[in-house]
Nucleic acid binder design. Structure first.
Lengths: 133, 133
DNA sequence: GTAGACCTTCCAGTGCGCTGGAAGGTCAAG
DNA sequence: CTTGACCTTCCAGCGCACTGGAAGGTCTAC
């Protein structure tokens, strides 16, 4: 299987696959006599795993860690569970931050409705955005 | 007012202030005979505005746009209102994405509870993370 | 034999908001 | 006079996940 075929199967670009190899996520495949990468069918599974793990919010570095454990013959379950818990914490925190930002933006939007542009002299920068200046 | 004083007043590093100047967010101040930047008190207001706008989720590029309008003598109200609305949309979208990720992570976590590590043979990569493979 | 679709490597850049460091000038205090 | 804190410029890099492009080799079909 050439890199383009694998790329099409996985829905990635060939560039990305080479990048994953270089980043230690995908083992270097055998080569054809001409030097072309020649992937076994399992490579698509590994890329699918990377996709799933990315969708769960894991970084490539974390995914590399999981793969390394599995490649060493260990079941990475405990490691993965920890990662998931850590990520749940991060995601919850980020959601809380975004909700706060959302509230702030809605306040600003309300203020924008109340401000008459004609009232805006050259003294400040913007009456909508400034806190109390 | 030297750059360090301004930095302390604004809660930023001198590096960041020079960066803002170079990025077109802060006008170049006059210099002392020795070449030191010599800021007027209003510089702190401008930095406070930048801080507020950043807290509202605007990028430096967007803030630069708002400042440019005001610096040209126009009240940037309408522009700001549009920005706020756009950002509200982005934030809502991001929150929705994160909630979906959160659900996915919780499913994974549940699955992690159900998987016995002893069941994990060398055939797959990880029973927790893979979809149906 | 030639077009063009694929593959290879390597280097460099994207966007974002800084941050670090080197090499040097300036200023106030002791 | 010297120390040390500050200032200047310029260049470089961070993290993240790619992406682009150049320069060249290879394979298939006509």
């Amino acid at each position: 299987m050439h890199i383009g075929t694998l790329a099409a199967a996985a829905g990635l670009s060939a560039k990305t696959i080479r990048f994953y190899e270089q980043a230690g996520l995908l083992p270097a495949p055998p080569r054809t006599p001409a030097g072309y990468r020649d992937y076994p069918a399992e490579a698509a599974d590994r890329l699918a795993f990377i996709r799933d793990a990315q969708a769960a919010g894991l970084s490539l570095a974390e995914i590399r860690g999981v793969l390394a454990i599995r490649d060493a013959g260990q079941p990475p379950c405990r490691h993965v569970t920890t990662l998931i818990e850590t990520h749940l914490g991060h995601v919850d925190q980020r959601i809380a931050e975004l909700l706060a930002t959302r509230t702030a933006l809605q306040d600003l939007h309300q203020r924008a409705q109340d401000v008459d542009p004609a009232d805006c002299g050259p003294e400040g920068i913007c009456r909508i955005l400034t806190t109390t200046a």
